[in-house]
Design a binder for these strands. Structure first.
Lengths: 131, 131
DNA sequence: CTGCATCCGTCGGGATACTG
DNA sequence: CAGTATCCCGACGGATGCAG
């Protein structure tokens, strides 16, 4: 699994001053994908632990494929833990880790911002589109 | 507008209903794209105001096409203001709005999280990949 | 200088079918 | 139940060229 993709080099003097921008971008790319946030939030709301089918129901519209893929990525990042119970029928439970929980907090900041300002954004869009 | 705040309900259907998830997702999709965050941060670092070519230099690797497109979207969302000076050669300046600045703050939460925890994520990935 | 237009490769992600 | 395997399409985004 080797995927560099590091074709661009950011100028440390400019953007990199405040932080490591690549990490930020990778993070945003990660949680900015279509389902990650919902799964993290859902897991939290479900008590920090849920099985595959529960998550499937908790996030309407998600396909099995994307649920499986996204969970695998979250597991790889250490944000959730996958536990397989060798039963028949099989049961798999996903649990949010402390690292995952810690991400929940800054995420909440964005959620709050969205709730507080989304109306303004919508209005700005409407105004822009009408001109 | 329905907004039950952060209702802790274990009802799976309520998971995605709390805190208007679509707005959250749209926001994340927006700022989670490849360049928006960098432009917002760069604009801030450049004093809240900069011209096209400055931004192009401030964000190495961005193409003119994406710079133009991203700025247009940010303008449409009311996060930046575009000002055209009818000179020869033409000059265009972009200024971050108050709304844009307000977004900067919750974003900083993610930046801080990335700085604080990215190493852990990397290690989790390395461990996962080695298994 | 500041874009827009066009071409084009890559990739996320949906639909569907199949497996242990 | 909990996935994996394929197919497929549209969106993202880079490179280049043209325009005001």
């Amino acid at each position: 699994m080797k995927k560099p993709g590091r074709t661009i080099s950011l100028d440390p003097a400019a953007v990199c001053k405040s932080s490591d921008p690549m990490a930020v971008r990778e993070l945003l790319t990660k949680i900015g994908d279509k389902w990650s946030i919902f799964l993290i939030l859902s897991l939290d709301l479900l008590g920090g632990r849920a099985r595959f089918s529960e998550l499937e129901r908790a996030v309407p519209g998600i396909s099995q494929r994307m649920l499986s893929m996204t969970l695998k990525n979250l597991e790889r990042d250490g944000l959730v833990i996958r536990e397989l119970f060798p039963e028949v029928p099989p049961r798999v439970e996903y649990e949010i880790t402390d690292l995952g929980k810690s991400l929940l907090q800054p995420t909440q900041g964005l959620v709050d911002w969205a709730k507080a300002n989304w109306e303004r954004v919508r209005k700005a869009q409407a105004k822009y589109d009408s001109e």
